[in-house]
Amino acid sequence: MSLLILGIESSCDETGVALVEAQGGAHVPRLLAHALHSQIEMHQAYGGVVPELASRDHIRRVLPLAEAVFAEAGRTLGAVDVVAFTRGPGLAGALLVGAGVGCALGAALDKPVLGVHHLEGHLLSPFLSADPPEFPFVALLVSGGHTQLMRVDGVGQYALLGETIDDAAGEAFDKSAKLMGLGYPGGPALSRLAQQGDPTVFALPRPLLHSGDLDFSFAGLKTAVLTQARKLGDQLEARKADLAASTQAAIVEVLVKKTLKALRQTGLQRVVVAGGVGANRLLREQLDAACARQRVRVHYPELHLCTDNGAMIAMAAAMRLQAGREQARRDYAFDVKPRWPLDSLCT
């Protein structure tokens, strides 16, 4: 028996809709179609995400995106078996849009609904790739708001190994880019500029690199970038590429070495990298090289699925249902969880 799952993502500044088909047994669910709208252009004028504007834009985009997905997949709305939506974490107003639309569709179709954890969507997104991982593995979750290392033994079987105690890696990219005047979104802009620079020019700190645990801290690095930018003064423009390269090198070194330490501690031989920072080219190159030396397999989501998207929400719902970790419900009253620790899903 197969299930057709509609996934809706609206946690921040991307509206994503997707259809995933889940077969019985251990078959990996299959992505049929997905569509995504990014609000980057709208928020650029403000230098960051404006929550109220984000919510209003989700309202405008979600149903047209759904229509496009059904057309691409050649399926009808009535064929949907389960409607999944992001319940949290994220911006409360943005989450309410996806939850409201998802539950309204479920009620109209008399089909069950399922609220999905946004980070679990990222965590399981590599299962959408042509080379899906196998359990167990170490997961490095790196996004704008989260940096975590998890031990993953199966769907819903997560153990937190370490996490950031202040800024996440994505925040370090974005905030450092803003200090350099690179605009919004800063992380991708900093990474592009870093390709033109020398990462050895500025000796920036690697916070908690030798802490002995698996926690992260990037706030001190951001402060060091600010200090260096002020020292450069009028020379900043000419040295900006070197500063960007040095910043990126510091972040990536910490991520790679902490991930390798997690592998040693757990004895596992497989890594999954997920979240927006997982698209960073230097991170992929250095982690691939380090893991190849230790004969460790590394899995990533496809590049176009590293950002927030509906496909990962539909996939997470499908895998939870397959594993018996969740039951979709016909109770259409809903709430959202702007703050929702991933390890709280463990049972």
Rank of each mutant, 00 (worst) to 15 (best):
M1R: 12
I5C: 01
G7M: 00
I8A: 02
V17Q: 03
L19S: 02
E21I: 12
A22I: 08
A22V: 08
Q23L: 11
P29G: 03
L36P: 07
H37W: 14
S38M: 00
Q44M: 14
Y46W: 15
G48P: 04
V49F: 03
S55F: 02
R56W: 07
H58T: 13
H58N: 12
R60W: 09
V62F: 00
L63K: 00
P64V: 02
F70R: 01
L77D: 04
A79Y: 04
A84E: 01
F85D: 01
F85K: 01
L91E: 05
A92G: 10
A94Q: 12
L95M: 06
G102P: 06
D110A: 15
K111C: 10
P112N: 03
G115R: 00
G115I: 03
E120A: 06
E120C: 05
H122T: 01
L123S: 01
L128V: 03
L128R: 04
D131G: 01
P136H: 07
F137M: 09
V138K: 05
L140E: 09
V142N: 05
G145C: 10
G145D: 09
V152D: 04
D153V: 07
V155K: 07
V155S: 06
Y158I: 14
A159K: 12
K175H: 05
L179I: 15
L193E: 10
L193N: 06
Q196H: 14
D198N: 15
P199H: 04
V201E: 12
H210I: 08
H210R: 14
S211E: 08
S211L: 06
G212F: 11
F216Y: 14
F216W: 12
A219S: 15
A219I: 10
G220T: 07
L221N: 08
K222A: 10
T227H: 15
G233M: 11
A245T: 08
S246W: 02
A250S: 15
V254Y: 11
K258F: 10
K258E: 13
K258S: 11
K258M: 11
T259Y: 07
L260Y: 10
L260D: 12
V271N: 06
V271Q: 08
V273I: 13
V273H: 02
A274G: 10
G276K: 02
V277Y: 00
A279V: 00
L282A: 12
L282P: 08
L287C: 06
A289D: 13
V296K: 02
H299K: 06
E302W: 07
L303I: 13
L303N: 06
H304N: 14
H304F: 12
A311T: 01
M312C: 02
I313F: 00
A314H: 02
A318V: 08
R320G: 08
R320H: 11
L321R: 06
L321V: 11
Q322C: 05
R330S: 13
V336H: 10
K337S: 13
S344P: 04
